[in-house]
Design a protein around this nucleic acid. Structure first.
Lengths: 207, 207, 207, 207
DNA sequence: TGATAACCGAGACGGTACGTCGGGTCTTTCT
DNA sequence: AGAAAGACCCGACGTACCGTCTCGGTTATCA
């Protein structure tokens, strides 16, 4: 639904009501087409045709292609926020990162995130939307978890939670966007283990 | 010039020679326009007009907009590869990261990297070009440095150099592309220090 | 009201009765808008808005824009049919033509006739409506008057009344539609006098 | 060709020259389509498709559909201006009117004049074009002929040539546009004869 | 020194997609 | 059942860039 995620809405009462099923159909069509042909090759006309509707109906809901795909992405990603379980810190982090990587790499919705980030480079509104509706909610959860872990003694003192999130997830997005190397179990473990144990030799640590 | 960085070249001998100054003028125009209006808003016609030349002359040199900007970016970035000095590991890494961040954030050429990565999401050839001509050369240098450092005992055993590069630079690109937080001295130091010392509490370390 | 002049009507009995004042309001709005902006620039939505009503209410009454304007035109033109007075032939004809010209050129309703004729070129139903409801009634009156005049010896024998009507009014509509010259007292008198006296030199006449 | 008949032209020298055959092909396609489907049902896309070209090429030449059809009409009408022969006045005029009526009623190009006049009701530029390029040239010729005839004693004194033209051709256009009656030999003769001999009874004449 | 070849500029070419507009219909709630 | 509001589908609009092409004209090298 087109709630606060991106402009556009109005709580009217009179007049013919919006066909709510169209929202879904359009987003479904959009995400599928992006998955099939790639973001750039998808046109609004094609989405309308696939969703068996008209351009008018689409433009009434979203101002541009990116907005449709953005909302579709969020809908697909909604069930992804899973509260951290009670495993040890390392396992929890690896589980979360693995789940995210899997979402990105295997689901039609997830695969579009790179295209969205791409468009966001030249579309400030979309960039805001991504930060507000995708990044920040997740960072908030992660931040809370990290601070709890710190209190529980699982993290040393002096850690900047925000930087830590970037230290863990940054490499993941980096490989996702640049595609220079695989994002697999081994990579995630390396990232997490380096972050946990550090890369300095032990003697320096114990000093 | 359009060498091996991206397709397009021909070793002729006869006929009117290419006006070499045009190469520069076109790239200059391209990079400036991108800086002024943003990548997406720049058209080939506009570049031609700004460079006081014609579309023909441009297409004779590069196959598409991204290729022009890519090469202009590389030319601007060329002097950036500085061999690691003989400072301690931490200082060297911070210096390199800081230099990169500065290039990205302050120079017209550097600011286009995000646009290039964006286009690369839907342009495999450009993605290859970025990896070949930008990422790999730098990773090779960094990798060599890391292995030397390891030999010198500045890094502990069992470190995957490739993952380490991503652990350090991934967060930087992440913030650059998503723009959710600042890339400043403090951030870089946090990233490096977490990587070096780890985030686990000391006792876990000494175990 | 939308009587036999153009399709669309229904003699219901049950349910909420039509708001008769709406008919007038819509026609008023239509004719005014056409006068202000020109026929082509007027949209059904604009008429609805001006008449403070809805498209639905309009389409319930008329099938298309032309039909609204047509009926409004007829309503405005209704009082125009004035029975020929007992003046001499020449004066009567000039009076009738002058009245028509004045209606066309000075009243909002009258000024739309050119637009209606224009639309009728690509709308057979409207063409019929114009002939049935505008042209024929007037031609019938004129025809009767001409035949009476003939009987009274005011016209020579062998005159085709139908052609005579066109000979008198055709030039008027011609200038109205093509706008190549003024329709004024002088013009009308010229037309009538040429028709009456002929253009051939006198000797030819008396022969 | 798109000369002074309607806006749009430029005598360049540099750059790829216009494909002159396209001008013809587009006008041909336009006139044929109008003839097949009627003016209103013809779209620019359809013209482009029929002429095996693109919308761009069309819009580069003419600003709107009416302009294309206008020029096509003029090209088709070009050979129509035939200098008056040396027949008696009545025969000459009938011949000219008959030729015009035939052009209007039987040729694809000629049949579009009504549509053009229709559009001209809401398009001042087109109205000008019609007057300048179609009406005035013919009126000039006719006017000269009438004045010569007057000098030769074939017309009586005191005739306004301009009004005479409208008296003869107005009825023709009137029936053409309103379609209330046929435009045939008999009609034309009636119009001409009424104009020549007048409709008043002889005694009034000789008085 | 003149042919040949590739360059250069300008701008027309066929295409594709855009986002908007208006038409005429349908679906609500309210009167 | 009409009124008002507004969503619906449809089709055309005129524009903007794309990447290619075709001109007239300009340097070069090579025969």
């Amino acid at each position: 639904m087109s709630d606060s995620r991106f402009p556009m809405t109005s709580n009217r009462s009179t007049g013919r009501p919006r066909d709510e099923t169209l929202d879904t159909a359009i987003m479904r069509a959009a995400i599928d087409l992006v998955d099939e042909r790639g973001y750039a090759a998808v046109t609004i006309d094609a989405i309308a045709e696939r969703a068996k509707t008209s351009k008018t109906a689409i433009y009434r809901r979203w101002p541009k292609k990116a907005a449709i795909v953005m909302e579709a992405f969020l809908v697909a990603a909604e069930p992804l926020i899973t509260p951290p379980d009670n495993l040890p810190f390392r396992d929890t982090v690896i589980a979360q990162m693995t789940a995210l990587a899997k979402f990105f790499q295997t689901t039609p919705g997830g695969r579009t995130i790179t295209d969205l980030i791409a468009v966001a480079q030249t579309d400030a509104a979309l960039a805001d939307a991504i930060r507000e509706n995708w990044l920040i909610p997740r960072r908030t959860v992660a931040c809370a978890y990290f601070q709890a872990a710190q209190k529980a003694g699982e993290l040393r003192d002096g850690i900047d939670s925000s930087a830590l999130i970037d230290a863990l997830y940054g490499p993941l997005y980096f490989r996702l966007l640049l595609g220079h190397d695989a994002i697999d179990k081994s990579f995630i473990e390396h990232i997490v283990d380096m972050a946990m144990m550090g890369i300095a030799p032990n003697q320096e640590k114990s000093s």
